[in-house]
Nucleic acid binder design. Structure first.
Lengths: 153, 153
DNA sequence: TAAAAAACGTTGGACACCCCAACGAAGATC
DNA sequence: GATCTTCGTTGGGGTGTCCAACGTTTTTTA
């Protein structure tokens, strides 16, 4: 009964929460390096993609689409606008809104970002075989799901 | 060729990097809530465990053991010391060093943290079957590995 | 139609985790 | 004895996430 406990720190390091933090950090670093050339980061990629998806749209629409915080959306769009990747013009039909639209440069950049993102993700999962990658992503997607398993609806 | 691109944002959201960020965030939130009762966070757990593992030890030893930044270690130990979970006494044999030692309360707290951490991790992987959990953690551990696949050492 | 409610963009602030540079004090090395 | 290294500490930066409040404008309600 007075057994030696297995090393407590090693136990922590084997926890999913710890491993997820590590792996996510690695992903962030890889993506950050990949996007550095464009001077952008992950959120910029997501917002640019959202603008491409739902055409000219108000900032609030992007907030709903992406789930990003409105405050953060302001900063992201400031960057994208400064880089000429999107235009931000007042909506004449609703003077509260700004109309965010993709520029030609924005579309080009989005294509590059998609490719860079794919490459970074390939590097991220380089240690896995293709079959393992598929399996891993499938399981990961279910873990990432926010859904609460409510008491049997 | 003028095919409709699949939604760009959905594509991003299916990337491992995105999913890892999401899942890691969920884990951080779950662990944060679990540890809130103790007034501690994840790094405190790790450092406390490290102290338990390698007995009375200097801060530099903990830095090497955990890989944490020395600056952050100072803050973490400040918290742990204030909570009476560790003692921090000058080393008479080397006046540069502080000897960090676990208190009885620290050992008790570490036990509670381990249990709370396990519970939070169970909730984190609740969507998976036991077999899937095992598989997921095994794959995740390999993804989290920092190791660069150097050009064949 | 006037008042209340909601939506919009913006600003300020906070938190968790991660990392780097530099410093004075003390010990180790030559 | 001078140099180099280690130790703890302080100061700062960066990414991603989130909340509270405000003035303005539109929509809804009484």
């Amino acid at each position: 009964m007075t057994q030696h406990h297995e090393p407590a720190l090693d136990r922590i390091r084997a926890l999913p929460s710890w491993l997820l933090n590590r792996a996510a950090g690695r992903g962030r670093r890889l993506l950050g390096e990949a996007f550095a050339h464009e001077g952008l980061r992950m959120p910029h990629h997501a917002v640019l993609a959202a603008v491409a998806d739902i055409g000219p749209v108000a900032q609030a629409g992007l907030v709903r689409k992406t789930g990003f915080d409105p405050k953060d959306m302001v900063g992201i769009l400031n960057d994208l606008q400064r880089a000429r990747l999107v235009t931000r013009t007042p909506d004449p039909d609703d003077r509260r809104k700004n109309v965010i639209a993709l520029t030609a440069e924005g579309r080009d950049c989005l294509g590059r970002l998609a490719q860079l993102g794919d490459e970074a993700n390939r590097a991220l999962l380089a240690a896995l075989t293709p079959a393992e990658r598929e399996q891993f992503v499938a399981l990961l997607a279910r873990v990432a799901e926010e859904r609460e398993e409510g008491p049997v609806g």
